[in-house]
């Protein structure tokens, strides 16, 4: 078994939104950044992987196991972090220890307590008394206390200061050290991923735009700039998305197309720009 997650052609139909044909693989031992603008379908995809909502098509395997038939087995080894805690806010951190021991057969109380100490979380405090950063650490403490081999994070860093985000990256890099642990990290703060992510899956408006090695992802796009007169219909046809301003324009193009237009300034793009311009392009902005 060499993959942590295999997702193939999964889809989900909602009244106002459709997720269709999302396919990607996360090899064991690596970090995958899952990116896309708000509303692209990242949380829906994660919920499909976790079997929290019913899928309308496709297959999902985690650790090589079909995710519905082996739901409990998979979840014993999967740690999840959401953008907000999933506990009763009146519970103390000790209560969480008791609850998790009831749900996870390999729950290690001693590790949980050690993690609370390490993260400087007071066990008698109630969940509602914790700051955003502490809640993230709490969810990580829980994830690490039942020997999770896969960590799934859904927008964990919105609302966190740069120091906390930095600490999280360190934690994730440490987590995958032995090559047996994997991370799926959905975020719209892509500067975090620009550094540590090995793979990127990029979705927009319920569709898969790219999945593969992060370095290759960045290399397949170019940020092109030019003057007003350079924005010919031919150029426009090859732009994924662009923005016009007073003296010219800038936009995103696939690298091979950018080579057709040597008159344009072409440079390596940040992941953010790729997302922003793809979004603009889809929405006719």
């Amino acid at each position: 078994m060499s993959d942590a997650i295999n997702v193939k052609n999964i889809s989900k139909i909602y009244p106002g939104f459709t997720l269709k044909d999302i396919t990607f693989d996360l090899p064991k031992g690596y970090i995958m950044g899952f990116i896309g603008p708000n509303g692209a379908g990242k949380t829906t995809t994660i919920k499909l992987i976790l079997n929290m909502i019913q899928r309308d098509g496709g297959t999902v395997e985690v650790f090589g196991l079909e995710n519905i038939a082996h739901d409990a087995e998979i979840k014993e080894q999967t740690g999840v972090v959401f953008d907000n805690h999933y506990f009763v806010d009146e519970w103390t951190l000790n209560d969480i220890n008791r609850v998790m021991a009831l749900f996870f057969s390999n729950w290690q109380s001693s590790i949980y307590q050690k993690k609370l100490e390490q993260y400087q979380l007071n066990p008698v405090k109630k969940v509602k008394e914790l700051s955003k950063g502490m809640r993230l650490k709490l969810m990580l403490a829980v994830a690490f206390s039942h020997d999770a081999k896969l960590l799934i994070l859904d927008e964990p860093t919105s609302g966190l200061d740069p120091v906390a985000r930095d600490e999280l990256l360190d934690t994730l890099a440490e987590f995958i050290q032995d090559g047996e642990h994997s991370v799926l990290f959905s975020t719209h703060i892509t500067s975090d991923l620009e550094k540590v992510a090995d793979y990127i899956t990029f979705i927009n408006d319920g569709r898969l735009i790219y999945t593969g090695i992060k370095d290759e992802f960045i290399d397949s796009f170019r940020l092109v700039k030019g003057g007003k007169e350079d924005l010919t219909p031919d150029v426009k046809a090859h732009l994924i998305g662009y923005r016009e301003y007073g003296s010219g324009f800038e936009g995103i193009m696939y690298t091979e197309y950018a080579n057709y237009f040597p008159n344009l300034l072409s440079e390596k793009s940040s992941i953010d720009n790729i997302i922003v311009f793809t979004y603009k392009g889809t929405n006719g902005l």
């Binding site: 919920k47 976790l50 079997n51 929290m52 739901d71 409990a72 087995e73 998979i74 979840k75 014993e76 999967t78 999840v80 959401f82 999933y86 506990f87 009763v88 806010d89 749900f103 996870f104 057969s105």
Partner: peptide, 13 residues
Amino acid sequence: NDLYRLYGIAPIK
């Protein structure tokens, strides 16, 4: 408390 997320990630039927 939207505890359904806890139920969703817990290995319990």
